[in-house]
């Protein structure tokens, strides 16, 4: 009962906090401009002549690497800097409820930004006959990826009252999660590390799962992977908040 009503109240508050400040608009504009720039200019969407969104989704892990921590950094750091965390956790809100509400709001916000890229698939549909199943699966993968990054950023935000520190920590952690399974890096590592180690580290990475889903392969294991990373990071967040407030 409280879980729902408290979660919803907090989600609503966070959502309007994004839109009451220029942050939301700046974020959406930057995200759309960069997504378009990389897709059309860097990857040469038109020149390749393929009506698919590979070149569009290819860049998302890198865009999110910077942009998602920027969205997540204030979630807890700001509560701690302003001292409102004390207010929040003395009004019968539990850490789990607050985490759920904040996660929902921020993830929905990222989802909105992602939906606003709709002109890109429309362009692809206008240029040729894309496989819409692959495109939908790509969007699902991107949304899950955004959620995983967000959970990382939520965790680092809970660690500090300083948004900048939270941002940097989240980027570093995110970079690890990309690079551990990024092919150029795994190729390089396998030259001097045993194969099982490289594979073991790579298993933590976003990339193999994200790439598989992008190709249109919806495998339960990839969903489980994203759910575990996100869940684990939220669990760590709960641990940190519990330590602060003694729950």
């Amino acid at each position: 009962m409280d879980m729902l009503s408290h979660g919803r109240a907090i989600a609503k508050r966070e959502w309007s906090a994004y839109f009451n400040s220029p942050v939301a608009y700046i974020f959406i504009v930057i995200f759309l401009v960069l997504a378009g720039f990389f897709t059309f200019s860097v990857s040469g969407f038109y020149e390749v002549g393929q009506a698919d969104l590979r070149s569009f989704f290819f860049w998302h892990p890198w865009l999110y690497l910077i942009l998602v921590p920027a969205v997540a950094m204030r979630l807890w750091a700001e509560e701690r800097r302003q001292g409102t965390i004390e207010l929040l956790f003395t009004t019968s809100v539990t850490p789990a409820q607050a985490i759920a509400g904040k996660m929902a709001a921020a993830w929905a916000f990222l989802g909105l930004a992602l939906l606003l890229t709709f002109p890109i698939p429309l362009t692809a549909g206008w240029l040729g006959r894309p496989d819409w199943g692959v495109i939908v699966s790509g969007y699902v993968a991107s949304f899950l990826l955004a959620g995983a990054y967000l959970a990382v950023g939520m965790f680092t935000s809970a660690l500090t009252r300083n948004q900048v520190i939270s941002f940097i920590l989240a980027v570093v952690l995110g970079l690890f999660l990309i690079l551990a399974g990024f092919q150029p890096v795994t190729d390089l590592l396998s030259q001097w590390a045993p194969g099982w180690l490289v594979d073991g580290v790579a298993a933590f990475s976003f990339m193999p799962h994200y790439e598989a889903m992008q190709r249109g392969v919806l495998d339960a294991r990839d969903f489980v992977y994203f759910a575990s990373v996100t869940g684990f990071m939220l669990f760590l967040t709960h641990l940190v908040l519990g330590n602060r407030t003694g729950r």
Binding site: S5, K12, Q82, T90
Partner: peptide, 27 residues
């Protein structure tokens, strides 16, 4: 319990009305 912490921490960017509505909802 109604609790007012030291140094009056509040969500600075909210309006008074939005803030009290938020708390009413929480309550």
């Amino acid at each position: 319990i109604g609790y007012m912490p030291e140094n009056t921490p509040l969500y600075d960017e909210m309006t008074v009305e939005a803030f009290l509505n938020f708390l009413a909802e929480i309550r």
